[in-house]
Simulated scan of single mutants.
Amino acid sequence: MRTVRFHTHGGPEVLRIDDVPLPEPTGGEVLIEIDAVGVTLPVVRLTRGQSDVPLPHTPGGDIVGRVRGIGPGVTGRRVGERVAGLAFSGAYAEAVTVPAAMMTAVPDDVDDLAALALVRGGQVALGVLRAGGFGEGDSVLVTAAAGGIGHLAVQLAAALGAGRVTAAVGDAAKAGFAREQGADHVVTYDQEDWGDPVDLVLDGVGGTVQDAGLRALAPLGRLVAFNGAGGTVDTNELRMRGLSVIGFAMAHLAARRRDTYERRQRELWQLYRDGRLNPVVHEAMPLDRAADAHRLLEARANRGKVVLLPR
């Protein structure tokens, strides 16, 4: 089968198509024939050596496809079933083996691209809102608000009753897109004043943007960090202003709070059916354009989700 791998670290140019044997599911795994795979910034950073993985390496990602094989010990899955989930490696390919615990069934009335966006981006967007103790009427600020997760976080905050939603973006050209998602106010990262203080910041950028997000909080405000870039926090500042900083990683939720994960996925499907949540796909590209997809994300040029189509 075809797969995209990198044999050395570097930029998008290190990605190449290889032919490899079809994987076999082992205990607790299922084999998924992939219809679509999402491209994420943490994976883009991975090719540049920001994490230690054995080489050659096929990047992971959120996937949607059909079950083609079932490993020993797996129950509740059937061959031919349409599913979506997370593959921590091997996703840039025509097929991948995934732990059955990381998969969820896709309803017939949810199309592939919407399912792909909601199974990770939607779960993260809803997860960070809940992790931050979001309540109806809260004011919310979302960084990376035009990205694959950020635009869904803006939509969800508005749909679930936020008193005010502020979108923070890196480029003023994305302001119109952010407003279309439900933002009441849009700021750019380089602005000194981000407007009135907010109750909750959802930060998908880190670094200096995370610092600005902390400054944007009202007393007793909360910041939820779900980025891979990191940043430092002055705990004395947190104490003096009564702030909270929470980290969110979706993999832990999916693996350790499975009932919560499944309940939230059902909620996301219903919000989609009701027209209150509308995932945006910036572009869907064939597998052999994986390098172009990475360039798009590195340039922060996307508005919504970037997708690869293996077949």
Rank of each mutant, 00 (worst) to 15 (best):
L308Q: 00
D19Q: 15
P219L: 11
L268E: 08
P286A: 13
A291D: 15
D196C: 04
E94R: 10
S244M: 08
H151I: 09
V142H: 11
G65D: 05
I17N: 11
R239Y: 14
Y189E: 01
V280H: 12
A225L: 07
R68V: 06
Y272P: 02
P25I: 05
P219W: 08
R164M: 07
A153G: 04
L116T: 01
L46E: 11
R48E: 15
G148V: 14
W194I: 03
V142T: 10
V83Y: 01
A254G: 02
A145F: 05
G182Q: 07
A178T: 09
V98Q: 02
G27D: 05
M285L: 15
M250H: 09
T208W: 03
G69F: 01
E33Q: 08
E298Q: 15
A100I: 00
F226V: 03
N302F: 09
L15C: 08
R68Y: 09
D112W: 04
P286F: 14
T40W: 03
D19W: 07
V96Q: 08
R82W: 01
H282R: 10
R179T: 13
G127T: 04
K174N: 10
A175I: 13
A144N: 10
R5E: 15
A291E: 13
D274S: 09
A93L: 03
V20Y: 02
E237I: 06
A95P: 03
G148K: 07
A105D: 12
L223G: 00
G90V: 01
L15K: 09
L129V: 01
R239L: 15
A212T: 09
G228L: 00
V187M: 03
T188S: 10
S51T: 12
A84N: 01
G247I: 04
E24K: 05
G27I: 03
D111C: 08
T8D: 14
D19Y: 04
R82D: 02
E192G: 11
T8R: 15
P279S: 14
E298K: 14
A131V: 08
L271W: 01
G163K: 00
F88R: 13
G204Q: 06
V83Q: 02
D193A: 13
A293Q: 14
A91N: 08
A158W: 00
I34L: 13
D199L: 00
V165D: 02
R16A: 15
L86P: 05
E33F: 02
V233E: 11
K305N: 12
V20D: 10
L22E: 05
G148L: 13
L15A: 13
Q50K: 11
A105E: 12
K305W: 12
V14D: 12
A125Q: 11
V37E: 09
D62A: 14
R222K: 06
V83T: 01
G206Q: 08
A146E: 10
D193I: 00
T58C: 15
K174Y: 09
F226C: 01
T3W: 04
G247A: 13
G127E: 03
